[in-house]
Amino acid sequence: MTALIDLKDVTRRLVDPEPVTLVREVSLEIQPGEFVAVVGPSGCGKSSLLYLLGLLDRPDAGSVRIDGRATETLSEVERTHLRLERIGFVFQFHFLLPELTAEANVALPIRRLGRYSRREADDRAHDLLAKLGLQAEAHRRPDRMSGGQRQRVAIARALANDPAIILGDEPTGNLDSVNTRLVVEEFQRLAHQEGRAVVCVTHDAGVAAAADRRIHMLDGRIVPET
């Protein structure tokens, strides 16, 4: 069985302003239905790894395969399209467009993909919000919601195009324990019941413990669990 995400000896360096290696020779396989936590001290390269997985960044060496398909040779437009169809991001800060309602935010990637009419896209966005308990907030703008609600809207948006891969960068970093539990349960459901791969960078031991697998990073490398 080919892994959904397959990294081989991935290295990512920066030369500007001073030479620094963000990710060093990382190899990693992630299967569908897996909930994986990435942990490690601040500055060890967790976010950098996530950008590489999510095709937002290109490695300087090594390969990133999605669905067994090499991504290095793809054009920027092809990589962007793959992101639109297959990958959903959730960040520590919600990153919703402040001018749009929750529903319009969630509908954006659906409408961009263009498989549904505007009406169907809005309906689908509404359903996703309802599943996350946000029916009442669908027509509110982000500045009129709580932090936990915004983060759930962001999750709904990440799920908009039914992606196989969910990438979270400290998605619970700004949430209280109740909201954190809601998000973790949602991630478990997405992996175990819907068969998606969920990769979640976290500093929260509880979140890490809830994952099927933990990847420890130190200084850009993956290190064995201690």
Partner: peptide, 16 residues
């Protein structure tokens, strides 16, 4: 700029 970044992460192209 923040919105641009999230649009790109969501799958909007440079052209978009």
């Amino acid at each position: 700029r923040r919105d641009i970044a999230i649009l790109r992460a969501m799958g909007f192209t440079e052209r978009d």
